[in-house]
């Protein structure tokens, strides 16, 4: 990164509070592919000059995979510890690149004492576009390219956010195509509910391979994702189909950064 990423601890030491906390999430912190998206979200924040910070090593899992897998005990332990950290820094607003973190902090933390305004990075991008602070100029041209969007379950069905990620694509002047199963009918990538961390139960095929059908049918050159787990599942699916040369999977933050050469 060109610029230093500010942490909450650094800022607090200087007596400052950022406007927004960027919650990176476990995938965004450790998964190599997702790390790129994390850095791209920082680039967007820096480009538009929003004062932000991350928790760095003070961040920890939100507890989402534990909760969806039935371990409510572990979830609440993590949640309460995280809430203590967040409230300690007087956090008011949070942006995150992970729909699972987004859903958990937004919907399940308030009942445990954590009340914040939580947005997904697609909503931030949409807002910046609406305010005229983000355009699609000076970078890679997506003009006329066939782009499709895979709805993450916890962003779409889980929280009814369907338009924000599409707004980030509409500005590209590309040819947007919807997958056969999209929006509230969107098909899961197969990673949710703890499946990311276990072998699938016996069946006829993998869920991400089922999703490949829709993607191939749409004849898209770019599949836009908005979730690090979807990113993994979709990329694996495309690799498995030997279509890596024809189809790219890019997070909407990556697309935004490329289109603006940030």
């Amino acid at each position: 990164m060109n610029q230093k990423i500010p942490t909450m601890a650094d800022m607090a030491a200087q007596g400052q509070e950022p406007e927004i906390l960027f919650w990176v999430g476990c995938a965004g912190s450790f998964d190599e592919r997702a790390q790129k998206i994390t850095r791209d979200i920082c680039k967007i924040l820096q480009h538009v000059g929003i004062s932000y910070a991350v928790l760095g090593t003070e961040e920890s899992c939100t507890g989402d995979p534990a909760k969806r897998s039935g371990n409510e005990f572990l979830f609440q332990m993590l949640a309460m510890t995280n809430i203590e950290v967040l409230n300690g820094y007087n956090v008011k607003k949070i942006v995150t690149g992970c729909p699972h973190c987004f859903n958990t902090i937004k919907n399940e933390y308030p009942g445990l004492g954590g009340n914040y305004e939580v947005i997904h990075h697609s909503q931030l991008i949409q807002q910046l576009i609406d305010e005229g602070k983000l355009k699609a100029t000076g970078g890679e041209s997506f003009k006329g390219k066939k782009i499709t969007f895979h709805d993450p379950c916890y962003l779409g069905r889980g929280n009814n956010v369907y338009e924000a990620p599409r707004a980030a694509l509409e500005i590209l002047d590309a040819e947007l195509v919807e997958l056969k199963r999209c929006k509230s009918n969107g098909l899961c990538c197969g990673a949710g509910g703890g499946q990311m961390f276990k072998e699938p139960e016996p069946g006829k095929k993998e869920i991400n391979m089922e999703r490949m059908q829709d993607i191939l049918e749409a004849k898209a050159e770019v599949v836009a994702a908005a979730c690090p787990f979807c990113m993994t599942m979709l990329s694996d699916g495309i690799k498995h189909q030997d279509k890596e040369q024809e189809i790219r999977v890019l997070d909407i933050a990556e697309i935004t950064v490329r289109a603006n050469n940030l």
């Binding site: 476990c26 965004g28 961040e59 507890g63 534990a66 897998s69 703890g194 961390f197």
Partner: peptide, 28 residues
């Protein structure tokens, strides 16, 4: 496999076996 994930989450704050101290390495 889920029990492994639980113990990772509990011990190092992430579902994978990475050290919490490395959590901010992406920035470098």
């Amino acid at each position: 496999s889920l029990n492994n994930m639980f113990s990772n989450v509990e011990n190092n704050g992430a579902p994978w076996k990475y050290s919490q101290a490395d959590r901010f390495n992406w920035a470098d």
